[in-house]
């Protein structure tokens, strides 16, 4: 009788210990997953363009971490991003799939033809990084430094006044800061 009691007691204690350590292990797995998603997200270009078929860079990173997405779905990042993703996730490197859109040769930013703009604010709502400023019935403009070139503002524009232009950093501002000779 006492032997069975001893067995029962020790099994109960062992089961409790197993539960506790599996709880700790599941916690550490969840943390490791979050760390992996963060590491993948750091490699992505943060254009939030959605061309990978996910709603943004973080959802794509989550899908990559879960293994439901492939590494070649990010055209803005291009082959550089695909290569570094392959290295991080220990997968075979491959080129960006053309189905997800063309890779831009140079980095492009949106540009608004300001006289044509009617101030409808539709592009402001479309912009994932809040790089367009302007109010209703007032002229809008693009903050070129903030624009990721995702092209999401082009389809909503009712007057087609948004173009993509090569990103040219404004050196005039920087040079005017220099001391005059």
């Amino acid at each position: 009788m006492s032997v069975w009691l001893a067995l029962l007691l020790m099994s109960a204690l062992a089961a409790l210990a197993a539960l506790a350590s599996s709880f700790a292990a599941s916690q550490s797995r969840a943390r490791a997953r979050d760390a992996l998603i963060g590491a993948i997200n750091d490699l992505l270009p943060q254009t939030q363009c959605g061309r990978c078929t996910y709603s943004g860079c973080l959802p794509y990173a989550t899908a990559l971490a879960e293994g439901t997405a492939d590494i070649n779905q990010c055209p803005p990042g291009g082959d550089t991003t695909a290569r570094s993703l392959a290295r991080l996730l220990n997968r075979e490197a491959k080129e960006v799939d053309a189905r997800f859109g063309a890779m831009p040769a140079t980095s492009m930013v949106a540009w608004i033809d300001e006289p044509a703009c009617i101030g409808c604010t539709k592009c402001i709502q479309a912009c994932p990084v809040d790089a367009i400023v302007g109010g209703a019935r007032f002229m809008h403009t693009v903050i070129a430094d903030q624009c990721t070139g995702c092209e999401l503002c082009i389809p909503p524009c009712p007057v087609d006044c948004i173009d993509m232009r090569p990103f040219a950093p404004r050196f005039e501002a920087a040079s005017s800061m220099r001391p005059q000779r």
Binding site: L13, A20, F23
Partner: peptide, 17 residues
């Protein structure tokens, strides 16, 4: 002794979390 070891093994993972 073994029962106390089991109790320690229950508490330690919880402390770790």
């Amino acid at each position: 002794t073994p029962a106390f070891v089991a109790v320690i093994l229950v508490i330690v993972p919880l402390v770790e979390v």
